[in-house]
Simulated assay, not measured.
Amino acid sequence: MSSEEARQLMARLLGTDNPVTVFQFEFGWAAQETLSPRQRAQGRQLGQGVFIIDQTGVVTAHPSLPPPLIIKRYAAARREGRITGRQIWPVPDPTG
């Protein structure tokens, strides 16, 4: 997956027309919606999460922390063989 494909996937999953910023790292991409000044004035940035698109194709949601910190934590977990965050795509099977 390219950076542009990662952007498009996140825009689709978030249902947004806003730009999505992606940060590539060794296990995939961290992504965050870029809010307009008006949206920020409305407080939409409060609680705005970061998403990880893992190189395996799994997308997980993470807390509202700076993307570099999320990347650092995620990469450390992946080096231990774990994927962290709440999986949002593909949609997990509730019976599995």
Rank of each mutant, 00 (worst) to 15 (best):
D17G: 06
R82W: 07
R73A: 13
E26C: 03
A77S: 12
F25H: 14
D54Q: 13
T21C: 03
Q32T: 11
P92E: 07
N18P: 04
Y74C: 01
T34D: 15
Q87M: 15
R44M: 15
Q45R: 11
I53A: 08
E4Y: 08
E4I: 03
S64E: 12
I52W: 00
R40D: 08
R38H: 09
A30F: 04
A11T: 11
A41D: 15
G96I: 06
F23G: 00
A41R: 15
R7M: 14
T21D: 09
V20M: 01
T84P: 02
V91L: 12
A11L: 04
A77M: 06
G57D: 04
P67F: 10
N18T: 09
V58F: 06
G49H: 05
S3H: 07
G47M: 13
S2N: 14
L69H: 09
I53E: 03
P63S: 13
R73Y: 04
L46F: 14
G96T: 13
R79K: 14
A6I: 11
A31C: 15
V59W: 10
A61D: 12
S2R: 03
I83C: 06
L69F: 08
L46E: 14
K72Q: 12
P66L: 09
T95K: 10
F51S: 03
I53W: 05
V58K: 13
P94I: 05
Q32G: 00
F25Q: 03
Y74F: 15
G43R: 14
D17I: 10
F51R: 08
V59Q: 07
Q24H: 10
Q87A: 15
A75D: 04
G28K: 02
M10Q: 10
I52D: 00
G49Y: 01
K72L: 11
H62W: 01
A77P: 01
I52S: 00
A75G: 02
G96H: 09
S36C: 08
T95D: 14
I52Y: 01
T56Y: 06
I52L: 02
V91S: 10
I88L: 14
G49C: 02
F51Q: 04
R73I: 08
R7V: 03
F23S: 06
N18K: 05
A76Y: 02
T34R: 14
A6R: 00
V20G: 00
A76G: 09
I53R: 12
R73S: 06
R78G: 07
S2Y: 07
D93E: 11
E26I: 11
Q24W: 03
D17V: 13
Q8A: 13
L14V: 08
R78I: 06
Q42W: 08
T60R: 05
I70T: 02
A77N: 06
V91Q: 11
L69R: 10
G15M: 04
P37W: 04
F25V: 09
F51C: 01
R79P: 01
A6D: 02
V58Q: 12
R38F: 13
R78P: 04
A6F: 03
G15S: 09
I71E: 00
T56D: 15
R82Y: 09
Y74I: 00
R7T: 10
R79V: 02
S3F: 04
F23A: 07
R38K: 13
A75H: 04
P68Y: 06
R79N: 13
